[in-house]
Amino acid sequence: MSNFECVICIVNHGFTDLVMTAAKKAGARGGTVLSARGTGNKEVEEFFGVTVTPEKDVVLILVPQDIRDNVLTLVNAEAGMSTKGMGIAFSVPVSDTVGIVGNEKENNAEEGK
């Protein structure tokens, strides 16, 4: 396993700045935004008294494992369900990476290149 994790955050359309600001505060370097469409359940919406906006943005952020918890905590605080972004965030483990500049330098240093 590599020492990276992919943080995936799903927010209402137009609120990716909230996510990236929070993630950068926690030490993330950048992310990629994809457009998506939510398929919220009407009964659940009525029960919780929330409206699920169908237009969503998905933010993919690759972060080192040691800052993952900070990123998730800050993203939840600044773009979570209690904010206008109404975002949910989770992370998935990454087994290997290619093209991460800092990572390659570390690998080369370990291999003595």
Binding site: F4, D96, V98, G99, I100
Partner: peptide, 27 residues
């Protein structure tokens, strides 16, 4: 197949500035 994919990607990313990118694998 990840090893050969990774090697080919590294070669591709080294072609030019415009060809740079990142990739990661999730089991």
């Amino acid at each position: 197949k990840w090893g050969s994919y990774k090697a080919q990607l590294e070669n591709r990313f080294a072609v030019s500035k415009a060809a740079k990118g990142i990739a990661y694998a999730t089991p």
